[in-house]
Design a protein around this nucleic acid. Structure first.
Lengths: 181, 181
DNA sequence: GCGGAAGCGGACCGGAGGGTCCGCTTCTGC
DNA sequence: GCAGAAGCGGACCCTCCGGTCCGCTTCCGC
């Protein structure tokens, strides 16, 4: 990544932030115009920084995944494996709730190097958390980080249409309970 | 509904069948052209029978919901409440698996009378199944048919991207286990 | 502060897809 | 089998949106 001119760097940051907001609020179908508008730049400027809409989406998702990855690594140090996994799940759930595009977009964006790498590393770390718990015998066998990710993401998505404000907590709890051995 | 000319009725049936297939296979974003092509009719013909794309989608969903409703009513007669609910859940899961658009489309199409009515009746009947089981004390309190529908739909959706062929069964089972008291 | 490079942004393009329209075809009642 | 109604279908329209391009602006090294 060559060094950018100061104004270009500022715009890049603004675009990433605006895109994150826009994807979170509107969903994966936000238009590039809307993102540009939120960032306060012209539509063409967005395309100079990101060659396609998908590339921008991937960049946003990669940032989110890196955040989750950092947190997951910290949790590996936790002595209690159940608390570690549960904390991770609740954290991921909140991330998915904030940005409904997170789990949905991962599959499509997996063709992008940055997303594939972050995803791979995250799975690796979370699988460690899971295996620790399975060894202690309190987590269902045959379940891996992909399953947990898919189920938690799905539970969050399912709660989006619910009337009750706290449904997402109930749904995640139901999934967690279902995952017990 | 006025009586249709014989050929028009035939086309209508073909369109509904083709649309059901198309939504199931391709997803909610199938184009009207694709549906018309599958039905072997012109694009304009589809629009004469259904004024908008959403109206067609709603019609397809209403048919599915009516099928589920009929089965749910039968299950009310079952003496064992747990078996009744579980059978319903597995049935709904298979329906959702066959037609990935089913649960997704319901919310948006709820503005259509036919869908709203079918949905309301289905919730009513399933709530009866659920309350029977809650009274027996083996189902989590505070859960209703919307929650169960959302969670099962989510589990199915989550399994769509999984590599393993049988993930949907595992996921539904996890949800069922999580729903126990 | 000047000149060249880097960046900007909005006008523009092209394709996709929902929806309309009307000349032609097919059906049906008599 | 004929007349008129009902239905058909594809050409067409229009909007939306991702992506390109280029004349103008802003920045930065000297």
């Amino acid at each position: 990544m060559a060094v950018l001119r100061a104004d270009a760097q500022r715009n890049l940051d603004r675009i990433l932030a605006a895109a994150a907001d826009a994807y979170a609020e509107v969903g994966p179908d936000v238009t590039m115009d809307e993102i540009a508008r939120r960032a306060g730049v012209g539509h063409g400027t967005v395309f100079r920084h990101f060659p396609t809409k998908d590339a921008l989406h991937a960049a946003v998702i990669a940032v989110r995944l890196d955040e989750l990855l950092a947190r997951a690594r910290e949790l590996l140090q936790r002595p209690d494996p159940r608390a570690a996994l549960e904390e991770f799940v609740w954290m991921a759930a909140e991330a998915a709730r904030r940005d409904r595009t997170l789990f949905e977009g991962i599959e499509e964006c997996a063709t992008f190097e940055e997303v594939a790498v972050a995803k791979g590393e995250l799975h690796e770390v979370v699988d460690k958390l899971i295996r620790r718990l399975q060894r202690s015998g309190t987590l269902r066998r045959g379940v891996d980080s992909r399953d947990v990710g898919a189920l938690v993401g799905a539970a969050i998505k399912a709660s989006m249409h619910a009337e009750r404000e706290d449904s997402w907590r109930r749904y995640v709890q139901i999934v967690l309970d279902g995952l017990r051995a």
